[in-house]
Nucleic acid binder design. Structure first.
Lengths: 136, 136
DNA sequence: AGTGGTTTGGTACTTTAGTATGAACTGATT
DNA sequence: AATCAGTTCATACTAAAGTACCAAACCACT
């Protein structure tokens, strides 16, 4: 946030300076008007590109980031979420158990709880719903 | 493609006209230079935004579009691909069969072939690999 | 110290997924 | 006409997934 303000401040300052400079240059005849206009055009072109990229980046990350609030509202615990990630990696219950250093039985319990919390009948359906909810 | 060329042609034409107009306006004194510069700045700002949005859209769709060549190179048939989509929707073999009006046995055959073609051990792993390959 | 939520793990069971194999039919290609 | 790839389906089997239920241990909170 602070960074954004600083960047914008410098940007506005630079543009004001550019305006004043170009006005002076045209009036005093040091530069011809076409050249000045070209500089202005190029500068604003890149300003447009930059600002647009910024806003798109924000929108992009917002649509891809994990919705932690949704996870909480679904009452999915930390461990259950780790199991969900294991499922999304295509692991079997046994493999998830080995990864998390617990037994397959434990994973089965977590999976069963996950399915009921996500209102899914299968792990593949859980994946599909989890994607819809932006929690993976 | 034709659309793009027309748009760019009109854009360049418009900019050239703007240049000529602004030069005339400044020389003849009908407009002051600040106003002209402001117009140029605004126009190029939006040109920058527009072009950037275009290029990002292309890049975006390229990363999300389905890689049909990859599907072919993996020797995945039309029917097998339909089954893969069923899996990605979280359907069971039986449900996929009902959707495609064939028996569960047929779906099992397709799934088994899919798994070997994708070098996966489970349907969830097939999903993960299919995403990596950008084929779903 | 007791409560509630989480994590762990077990047994016993049902359901679904996946493999292996064989076979018949279709449509396009040569 | 013969071949090949794709689709269909079946049987019989093994493996994995999922359910239901129970129980112990843990941690944070009041």
């Amino acid at each position: 946030m602070r960074k954004t303000i600083i960047v914008f401040g410098l940007l506005i300052l630079g543009l004001l300076l550019l305006f004043q400079f170009s006005k002076y240059a045209v009036i005093s005849g040091d530069l011809d008007s076409e050249f000045t206009i070209a500089i202005i055009a190029v500068v604003f072109f890149f300003v447009g590109v930059y600002l647009n990229k910024r806003s798109l980046q924000k929108r992009h990350s917002a649509s891809e980031d994990i919705d932690h609030k949704k996870i909480k509202s679904l009452n999915i615990s930390k461990r259950e979420y780790e199991v969900l990630l294991g499922i999304s990696e295509g692991l079997s219950n046994k493999e998830i158990g080995e990864k998390l250093f617990v037994s397959e039985s434990t994973i089965k319990t977590h999976v069963s709880n996950l399915l009921s919390k996500l209102n899914a009948k299968r792990r593949t359906q859980a994946l599909q719903k989890a994607k819809d909810f932006n929690i993976i």
